[in-house]
Design a binder for these strands. Structure first.
Length: 275
DNA sequence: AACACGTCCTGAGCGC
DNA sequence: TGCGCTCAGGACGTGT
């Protein structure tokens, strides 16, 4: 169940298990996730030491010495766990990375929408080239109302679809797009170019707040993640609108609505959120 | 059976 | 007619 807050949580949970470890072997049980799985075909990965574990957008970057990085995306159903090398495999466990302390890092993904790739990093760069075109991190200082207003200019598509576009801002998925627009009291179908400066300001604030709240709430998944059985635990979301069609708005008690926009479920309050 | 929290690809539509 | 761009919709396995 990966959204930016959970990718952040997984990244932070993996870090102490991986940094400083040396990779001994990599075993793969599928040839194809969203992209072909070829990580085991790179002999230079064996013996490499993990130097850092970071997040960019919804990607987990596991950096190795030798200017290599493992790029992991959880897609819709991807998950990671750290268990001993002797632990039995479970269904849809596609990749097992053996570490020099007797533990393993395992990637599981029933729908196989995720990815697990090995990339070189150029001399000048800190991240792989394929991530360079992304927009700013929503929690970084560059994501301002002025920036969003600028991106919105001349764009006719609904603001909900624009904030979900990684070229505009990364990490805002289908759930948090609806939640942020509700908090900002903006109708999800509003053409982006029609947003005033004041509404852009409200939206930027709402995106930051809802993601930060979710990261804070996601803290509980860290301990569950670290358990040997890798159980998901209960990541309780504090959702105002997502999945609540027909239920009353927390602010005005009107029935919330569901519509489909760009093929995705979208939830909003017809009274609180205006064009 | 409908629907699922992500991303890439395709093709339609439009302005020049 | 075509180029470049924007945008919506489908596709991608499996699970509930």
């Amino acid at each position: 169940m990966p959204e930016l807050p959970e990718v952040e949580t997984v990244t932070n949970a993996l870090r102490p298990h991986l940094v400083g470890r040396c990779i001994t072997t990599v075993e793969t049980h599928t040839a194809q996730l969203r992209t072909p799985v070829v990580v085991h075909q790179h002999p230079e990965i064996c013996g490499a030491t993990i130097t850092a574990v970071r997040r960019r957008a919804k990607y987990i970057l596991v950096e190795l010495d030798r200017r290599l990085v493992i790029l992991v995306h959880l897609g819709m159903t991807g998950s990671c766990r750290i268990v001993t090398a002797a632990a039995p495999s479970v269904d849809h466990e596609h990749i097992i990375v053996y570490l020099d302390d007797g533990m393993t890092w395992r990637y599981r993904d029933p729908r196989r929408f995720g990815m697990f790739e090995l990339h070189p990093i150029g001399k000048e760069e800190v991240i792989p080239e394929c991530l360079a075109a992304f927009g700013p991190e929503p929690l970084a200082a560059e994501f301002t109302a002025e920036y969003l207003r600028d991106v919105c200019r001349q764009r006719q598509k609904p603001i909900k679809n624009l904030v979900m576009d990684n070229a505009c801002v990364v990490g805002v998925g289908n759930i948090y797009a609806s939640e942020a627009l509700y908090r900002a009291r903006i109708h999800p179908g509003t053409p982006a170019a029609r947003l005033s400066a004041a509404r852009c300001d409200r939206l930027v604030t709402a995106v930051r707040q809802v993601l930060q709240d979710a990261i804070d709430a996601g803290g509980t998944t860290i301990s569950d993640f670290q358990t040997v059985d890798g159980s998901e635990g209960k990541f309780s979301r504090h959702l105002d609108v997502y999945g609540r069609a027909g239920e009353p708005c927390h602010a005005c008690s009107r029935d919330l609505r569901r519509v489909v926009m760009a093929g995705r479920s979208t939830f909003y309050c017809p009274a609180c959120q205006r064009y």
